[in-house]
């Protein structure tokens, strides 16, 4: 499974996607404030990462429904569970690695098992905190959360989708793990966006092969698709914003209507998006070739976010180059 060298794209570059003018964590925090204006049951909790999770506006707007527990992620999840038993909709915010690993058992036993209405607001997904190194990367969280019955996992690809995800998460009855990033990301959606939990968005039509991304890698898949047109390849791009329950219909359609399925995730390729897609295809008996791009059973190392995405083959040019290699 450990990768051979990631091939590099040798063709012309393409126009990068426009970047959002706001950091994704800040956008997420503002979206939550908007939800909380009309829903007095929404609470926000954080564990000494108020600034880093973009919740300062929430804390200022609704101090009576905000709690910073200090550096105590496990207790934060327990407190959120207790609030939820009393009809509140607590949003517990911390870094993804802490939400999914430090507080793992609290999330499973205090939130998922009793099916309590807690939203886990997990920032700095994947290698978003690149230079923080392995301790601060969240490359296992989707795999961990997917195994918890009752858990829904959502990962928005840009600011507009973050609004939709936040609204959907709060409206959904039951635990939701919301996988968020850190800095500004590319703009994927403009204007109206239809959004439904469990229903993947088709962001680019294509009929040769399908690229499936989630969160940050949706933009990278779009870039890869644009590059692949130089080789006369028409790539479909799906935004798998709901990692659980996964949209098996969209996966089946991709496998039936195109000749190859490639997943790209800022996560280990074990148990995340690629794992989920592989499970669906295998159980449906779909023999279409599948390739999983992501961090290949190693620790990602130190580097900037974009550098690490490129190093692990999940930036647009590297995705396109690997696709060409798969097709050979």
């Amino acid at each position: 499974m450990k990768s051979a060298k990631i091939p590099q794209w040798t063709g012309d570059p393409v126009q990068p996607l426009p970047m959002a003018d706001v950091a994704s964590r800040v956008a997420a925090g503002l979206c939550l404030v908007e939800e909380a204006r009309s829903n007095p049951d929404i609470w926000a909790l954080t564990s000494d990462v108020l600034n880093s999770t973009g919740l300062v506006p929430f804390a200022k707007a609704f101090p009576e429904r905000f709690l910073n527990v200090g550096i105590a992620e496990q207790s934060m999840m327990g407190i959120a569970a207790g609030l939820a038993t009393c009809g509140k909709i607590p949003v517990a915010a911390t870094f993804g690695f802490l939400a999914s690993m430090r507080a793992c058992e609290q999330v499973r036993s205090d939130i998922a098992y009793p099916n309590l209405n807690v939203k886990i607001y997990a920032t700095h997904a994947g290698v978003a905190l690149g230079k923080g190194g392995t301790t601060h990367h969240a490359l296992e969280d989707v795999a961990i959360m997917r195994t918890f019955a009752n858990m829904t996992i959502l990962e928005p690809a840009d600011v507009l989708e973050t609004q939709k995800v936040m609204a959907a998460a709060v409206a959904h009855q039951g635990p939701v793990y919301i996988r968020l990033r850190r800095g500004p990301g590319p703009v994927i959606y403009q204007g109206e966006l239809a959004y439904q939990i469990g229903k993947a968005n088709l962001v680019r039509e294509g009929n040769d092969l399908t690229l499936i991304g989630c969160g940050r890698t949706v933009g990278e898949c779009l870039l890869a698709a644009a590059l692949l047109t130089q080789r006369g390849i028409s790539a479909r791009v799906l935004d798998m914003h709901t990692l659980k329950p996964i949209d098996d219909e969209a996966i089946a359609a991709a496998a039936r209507e195109t000749r190859m399925v490639i997943t790209a995730e800022d996560h280990t390729i074990i148990g995340g998006l690629g794992g989920a897609v592989a499970e669906v295809m295998a159980e449906l008996g779909l023999a279409t070739p599948l390739r999983r791009l992501g961090v290949r059973d190693i620790y990602a190392g130190i580097g900037g976010e974009d550098e690490l995405l490129a190093k692990h083959g999940i930036a647009g040019p590297q995705i396109a180059a690997q696709v060409m290699q798969f097709l050979e």
Binding site: G78, T85, S109, D110, P114
Partner: peptide
């Protein structure tokens, strides 16, 4: 808690209940 009427929290793994109680007390105060 979802199977036993009157049980206010599912428990079993030690060290979890006090934080949950804090959440309940906070909700009550609010």
């Amino acid at each position: 808690m979802n199977k036993i009427p009157g049980c206010d929290m599912s428990t079993g793994s030690l060290g979890h209940g006090l934080a949950v109680g804090i959440g309940m007390a906070l909700a009550g105060r609010a």
